[in-house]
Simulated scan of single mutants.
Amino acid sequence: MPTVRLTEIPAEILALIETRAGPVIKTENLKAGLNSEIAARIYTPEATVFVKGLREGHRRVWTQAREADVNPHVRGIAPALLWRIQAAGWDLLGFEDVSGSHADYAPGSPDLPLVADAMSRLSAIQAPDITLRTMPDRMKEHTATPELFAGDTLCHTDWFPTNVLITGRSAVLVDWAWTSRGAAWIDPASWVVWLIDSGHTPAQAEQWAARIPAWNAAPAACIDTFARATVSVWEEIADGQTEPWVLAMLDAARTWSAYRFPAPRW
């Protein structure tokens, strides 16, 4: 479930931020994203910083450590982490501010090649020796053969369009909370469902996935299994949900699985 976002940053939080960023002259709360209690652009006389934070008792506070640990390994395709504050019951991360628009995955979008390029670069990064969940562990409740998703690649896994910022001629990836260790083809396979949701046919979506070399090296049986497992994932997410985007993603996952496993013709 999404985390409730604070509409105002408490004064004590601003005081904590000022210990690292300097005097705050303006704040801008941001609407994008689902997992932070604080998500804001902080303006100081010297710089602009993006701050995201959770209370230390929040059920997802572990995502703060995950993002902090991953950041040194994804420089160049993610905003740099400038500082982390753990005090007064809060866990706060300050990132370099990146100006850009959220990626448009629709057919014909000029953003698509930029996303594919960033995904290709990410698929070449070996998972570092930090605490990460593995894709087999994450997917074990959704398939009988989760070992097919094993690998040593650093996988982002959350290709919600708001997690991809288009800045000029490149794509920058944010929100690394669900980063995992897995097969190099996991990210392009995950992207396929978002592309279908954005208006692509399954064949068109897979053509974009094929821009990433790791996808082309993946055994078809692995991708088939992932497609079916993805339906199970979205069925779990959609259980009891009425959010239109969640139900649309479930439909997109089912559309992809049906494409990979067409009904027999008698």
Rank of each mutant, 00 (worst) to 15 (best):
S123C: 09
Y259S: 07
H102Y: 07
T63A: 10
G100I: 07
Y43R: 13
L6V: 06
W90N: 07
P136Y: 09
F160Y: 11
R84Q: 13
T179Y: 02
R265S: 11
D69K: 15
A88P: 01
F50K: 02
D239H: 14
R20V: 03
A227Y: 10
D104Y: 05
E235H: 06
M1E: 13
R121Q: 12
H73D: 01
D251N: 12
I17G: 00
A78R: 04
I186T: 13
A39E: 03
A227T: 07
R84A: 06
V24N: 05
T143M: 09
E18W: 07
I166N: 00
W83K: 00
P110C: 02
A263E: 14
D175F: 01
W215P: 00
L154C: 08
A203F: 04
L247Q: 08
I223Y: 04
P72G: 06
G100R: 06
A150T: 13
A252H: 03
L34S: 14
T63I: 13
I9K: 12
L81H: 01
A144R: 13
P202M: 00
L132W: 09
T225N: 15
S232W: 07
P262W: 10
R228A: 11
T3K: 15
A221W: 06
E235Q: 15
G57L: 05
F261V: 02
T225Y: 09
N35G: 12
D251F: 09
S257N: 13
P23T: 09
D117P: 03
N216I: 03
T255A: 13
G22Y: 11
E37F: 08
G94A: 08
A252N: 05
T157A: 07
R228V: 11
A65F: 03
A253F: 06
E12A: 15
R55K: 15
I186R: 09
T179F: 02
